[in-house]
Design a binder for these strands. Structure first.
Lengths: 211, 211
DNA sequence: TGAAGATTGTTATATAATTAACATAGTATT
DNA sequence: AATACTATGTTAATTATATAACAATCTTCA
């Protein structure tokens, strides 16, 4: 971060999208791009592109534009995708399995190092190269391994219990797929919520109200 | 909708959250609530609650507050969760399976009526009470059944092909889990995107930048 | 039934986000 | 090397969103 002022969440949430588009351009061997063209491709305004990027520093060059690969790397850095954060998955149900198998964590700067479930039927199953552990092993595991974040793919009703354990173990960053309100219980946590059903309800609304 | 002005997306995207909290209160047999209390529970301002609700009509009563069950039903209606929209799932991989098995579509006003995959290994598998069909049957199925929306759980590279087919069949509402930019191809579509990796990258950023 | 209290709906204000404008600085070309 | 062009970084203007304030009105209770 080169600029001191704190960045608004609106800008932050756009960064991954820039990263995606730039990665793609890079793969297509495009080596430079102007804010105008990038904006066109991404369907936003050029003004927004320039403003957003300038929150972090002047990566462009007047009269030339931006170097695609450089800009991509800069954003990767800003997002911190090089940190190799260690993550554990709690809940190896359908959603947990899908998350574990479907995501390319490596590319996202995470490493999934363990999966836990409290259901005996799930314990022992393989997810990629991980074997699902019994939830009873959670504490021991976390005491013996660095764990930066937990992915919570468990029913809402189970979250409170797990959350208390994780919090006590010092794990305070969560990727949460349930509707449990984590920050209401522990304020000093960092949570990204994935509310699939909210998203679908929004689609529903729009289906009704778009003539 | 009782008010004529078009509602901002910021408000729309908050509606499902209201609906969730109100449903919960209702299950707890709470029968009335003030904007102040609801705001407290939801961790927003009372002002926002009142403004949001008043976009759609005056559901409250001065000196009393809001009837929980009535307000819940109103929002359900505003969201259009009673329409019984018919949905098909494209892609029965890990994510598609998770979506099919994990979501309570009934509660969300959707009915999942078919699943398709182009992988012979997937075809014939059961997802809940549905049998995965071969993608080659897509057109025939859609011609013989009402289909309001498609859930796209396929790799990015497959989207274009499927999208063209669906669009030609008149299916223009999508719940999209890939990073393919649907509206760039067809402007007159309605898309809700679920960008799981964007979300995780945002968590990553915040992990780095929160003291 | 009337007065005190509560809470809405709504208007006004403040803050945040987006877009537009443009001076400045580099590129490309002859 | 000079000129025309391009496209940034940044400041200004606009628009959108969120918060505050309060008058109007319903509830509650004596």
């Amino acid at each position: 971060m080169s600029k001191g002022d704190s960045i608004s969440m609106s800008v932050i949430r756009r960064l991954p999208r820039y990263y995606r588009f730039l990665s793609e351009l890079n793969e297509q061997n495009v080596d430079r791009i102007s804010s105008t063209k990038l904006a066109q491709i991404m369907n936003v305004t050029a003004s927004q592109v320039r403003q957003d990027l300038n929150c972090f520093g002047g990566f462009g060059q007047q009269g030339y534009g931006y170097s695609v690969s450089q800009l991509k790397d800069e954003i990767k850095n800003i997002l911190g995708l090089n940190n190799g954060y260690k993550a554990i998955l709690i809940g190896a149900g359908n959603l947990g399995k899908a998350v574990a198998m479907h995501m390319n964590f490596e590319k996202l700067g995470f490493e999934l190092i363990a999966c836990f479930d409290n259901n005996e039927n799930k314990v022992g199953q393989k997810l990629n190269d991980l074997v699902v552990k019994n939830e009873s092993e959670l504490e021991e595991f976390c005491n013996n391994n660095r764990v930066d974040t937990a992915f919570l793919c468990i029913p809402r009703i189970c979250v409170e219990n797990i959350l208390d354990k994780l919090y006590a173990l010092g794990i305070k960053n969560y990727w949460n797929f349930s509707h449990y309100d984590i920050t209401a219980r522990y304020a000093d946590t960092l949570v990204e919520n994935v509310h699939l059903s909210d998203n679908l309800m929004t689609l529903c609304y729009r289906m009704n109200n778009t003539k």
